[in-house]
Computed example of a mutant assay.
Amino acid sequence: MANKKPIGVFDSGYGGLTVLKEIVKVLPEYDYLYLGDNARAPYGPRSFDTVYQYTLQCVQWFFSQGCELVILACNTASAKALRTIQQQDLPKIAPDKRVLGVIRPTTEVIGNYSKTGSVGILGTNGTIVSESYPIEIAKFFPSLQVYQEACPMWVPLVENNEYNKPGADYFIQQHLHHLFGKSKEIDTILLACTHYPLLIDKIRSFAPANTRILSQGEIVANSLRDYLERHPALAGICTREGGRRFFTTDSVTDFDNHATVFYGKPVSSEHVELSL
């Protein structure tokens, strides 16, 4: 993508491909560059400072590739690193560039889906411990009751291709039982991890009837479209030739095999070396 200015989409691994897939559906004309930091995944159990350092390094790599806009399609990076990067780093290193996350677009609308005023958040340990969702939701829907549940086994189930097998049932039932044990009024569940859409059929089968299950891809894609409409100067800089390139910090063979599941079609990735 020499001389191009693609939109960067970042995740610690493969999950962000579920977001990219939805973004491409809504905005197919743009060029996109995806990076999965698979060599250092998962980010969920890591400290705030480590996630921040890794994420900032990847953001700087996107900038070096010509990206004017980077989407952190990773809940853990959005929860643990985005605000610091936006407030402290961008003014110093790239004041004209933008980095956006997946938490705010979701929290701006989640209350519109609930009739009971009670929602559940399912995410990684890092996302749940950060309290990012309750904090952000309170800004837009202060009366909404938010109940959280960390699901540490769900990402390994997906990445080891066990998500459709009977072994996944125990862990899905366990965490849904814990979540609804906190409140029977929950009528809307947010999948606050980009891996979890691959588990959505099983989640639906074990959740109470008529529970609304939200995945983030479509919400983020529509939010990005609106953002670019509100910022025409930035939208005008991002190139529109329909290009897609995929990078990973780990094995390209492994990435390509997993990417087919997350992205819905075959990809051919390139390796990039990043180290702190």
Rank of each mutant, 00 (worst) to 15 (best):
S64T: 13
V59Q: 04
T76S: 05
R104H: 12
L56C: 10
T106K: 04
A94M: 06
I110D: 00
V59E: 03
Q88M: 10
G66Y: 10
L90M: 10
Y54S: 08
V102L: 11
T107H: 00
A73Q: 01
P134M: 09
P91E: 00
S132V: 07
C67D: 13
Q87L: 14
V99T: 11
Y52M: 09
V70K: 00
Y113F: 15
E136V: 07
R104N: 09
N75L: 09
V102W: 06
Q88N: 15
T107G: 02
Q86Y: 10
I103F: 08
E136T: 09
Q87F: 07
P134H: 09
K115Q: 12
R83C: 12
I121H: 05
V119K: 02
L56A: 11
K92T: 12
S132T: 12
T55N: 08
S118F: 14
R83A: 14
Q65K: 14
L72M: 05
V99M: 05
V99C: 12
I128Y: 07
K115W: 06
P105D: 10
F63V: 08
A73Y: 03
G111R: 01
E131H: 14
S118H: 15
T55I: 11
T107L: 03
R98M: 07
E68Q: 11
I93Q: 13
G126S: 01
V59L: 07
A81K: 01
C74Y: 03
K80Q: 15
K80S: 11
A73M: 05
G111N: 00
E68A: 12
W61A: 09
G123W: 03
C74S: 04
N75Y: 03
S78M: 00
Y133W: 15
G111M: 02
I71M: 02
P95V: 03
T124F: 05
L72T: 01
G101Q: 11
K115Y: 10
L72S: 01
L90R: 00
Q60P: 08
P95D: 07
T84N: 15
V70L: 02
S118R: 05
S118C: 08
S64Y: 10
L69E: 04
Q87P: 09
A77H: 06
G111S: 00
Q57S: 13
W61D: 03
T127V: 05
A79Q: 01
D96K: 13
L100C: 06
V109S: 00
N112W: 03
P91C: 02
D89L: 09
I71E: 01
A138V: 11
C67R: 05
